[in-house]
Design a binder for these strands. Structure first.
Lengths: 265, 265
DNA sequence: AAACCAAGTTTCAAATAATGAAACTACATA
DNA sequence: TATGTAGTTTCATTATTTGAAACTTGGTTT
């Protein structure tokens, strides 16, 4: 095994994906020269990567502007990813109903690498959503869905995750230490649901419930979000029955469908 | 010496992406052996590809069941792609409005490699089971959005695309030859909008309008879909004003956003 | 108009990574 | 224990990638 300086020289595919990331991170069409500035690769090498990726549909090239953007092949792949590796397809009808019943914003999230990945979402007003809203990641330590999931992680998984958190104080109410979080998590465990009391964004509050397998393994979480202008934490608890109903329906179907028990790793 | 131009054997990256596609197409976690069966590559080679892709986060591996699924990095990239290179973010409010006004299913599509890629969708108030979801691909020659876009393709792009079509007769009304299609396309061009008269699915009809730049380049298309049980082609034309309004709004914003006259920001 | 410049594209020998048959391991089943 | 199946590793061979530099293109300055 090559320890020490692990250069990017350990795989052509890896390097090409680096370039893909670079384009994606811009969020706007990018010029070749812009990529070149940030790239560790020489002109000709980067040029070839960009050519291959474009030819493969992973990037799209606008010949008028001479700019590169993420390609439509990625959109296609996304559909598959969303279908296959998330709870979203199972949860869809239940989120729809929850959204109708509560009239509030609804989130479905899963835990990934210590972060919260929003896998699906219903807006307070719009009844239909796409995977477009998946792919957004957020902090685990200051969101309702994040804390709901952390509360049910076994210690061996929880410890490293807590270590990864940035503990940035987004608001005055953000929990910013591991110890405080462990206390909060035990309360959430006892209570069965988590709140986000403006810990991430001022004025935004939510109530969240974890999706668990029968054996207690965490699959994800669902939350109902509102604003302090419209209600308060107590007010949110009136959505609990609907929230619990949705979560247990999702858990039941997920169990049958795809997540037989036993933890990984 | 350049060997005879063979198929996709022209790059490691391309081959790896092929593997990605294979996993994505399954729509469920796949075993290594399943991939091996379909793969043109020998065991060791495929194994290395899968290893690299997993290590890179493009695939995720479930060690319990020894299965591969599309990975989280892919979800993130895909989100970026959807945001940056599709019309969806621009079109969103307009699709919402069109959906409200018509009460029917609304599709936003783009052309990708001779196929129709549905990049966004709004369901009808009465949901009808249908073959289309955001991120899915469909045939260009027998869908309203597909024909609307083909009608405005320059000849140099149209010819190869027509050659790629399968011309499978999904229904008795499907157009199944290039010549018939060229005639249909000229009618669509003259008329300004395309119909799908049960050419893809029995009972499903739609009206579609292309999204064009000022210079006439095709960006995408929007359609309003209904069923023969509820209306007919003439009936669909009453949605034309709303459809045109949505399309021209999208075209206008797309022009500003994606094709600015000056690089700014 | 000529000179210049910047961005993008191509070349080619050297360096490197990919290849794949076969051997090996792990685990399940007879 | 024997046998089969799925997954993993090895390593000499082969093909691909690499990147400095030269070249092209299109636009701007002198």
């Amino acid at each position: 095994m090559t320890t020490g300086a692990r250069q990017a020289g350990d795989g052509t595919v890896a390097k090409a994906l680096t370039v893909l990331d670079a384009v994606a991170e811009h969020g706007r069409p990018v010029r070749f020269s812009e990529l070149l500035e940030e790239s560790p690769y020489p002109k000709a090498t980067l040029y070839r990567f960009v050519q291959v990726l474009t030819q493969q549909g992973m990037l799209s090239f606008d010949p008028e502007r001479q700019t590169y953007a993420p390609g439509l092949r990625l959109v296609r792949l996304a559909h598959a990813a969303w279908q296959a590796s998330s709870l979203a397809p199972i949860a869809r009808p239940h989120l729809d109903r929850l959204s109708r019943e509560t009239g509030e914003t609804v989130h479905l999230a899963q835990l990934d690498g210590g972060q919260v990945l929003y896998v699906d979402k219903r807006n307070a007003r719009e009844p239909v959503a796409m995977y477009s809203q998946a792919g957004k990641v957020g902090p685990a330590y200051c969101t309702g869905v994040g804390k709901a999931m952390l509360a049910h992680l076994p210690e061996t998984e929880l410890a490293p995750v807590l270590q990864q958190q940035s503990w940035h104080a987004f608001t005055g109410k953000t929990i910013t230490t591991s110890d405080a979080m462990r206390h909060e998590l035990s309360e959430i465990r006892a209570r069965g649901h988590a709140f986000d009391d403006e810990e991430h964004e001022p004025g935004i509050i939510c109530i969240a419930v974890p999706i668990l397998t029968r054996s207690g393994r965490v699959l994800g979480a669902v939350s109902v979000t509102s604003t302090t202008a419209r209600t308060d934490l107590d007010g949110l608890t009136r959505h609990l029955p609907a929230l619990r109903a949705a979560v247990s329906a999702i858990a039941g179907e997920a169990q049958d469908w795809r997540f037989p028990d036993q933890a990984a790793e």
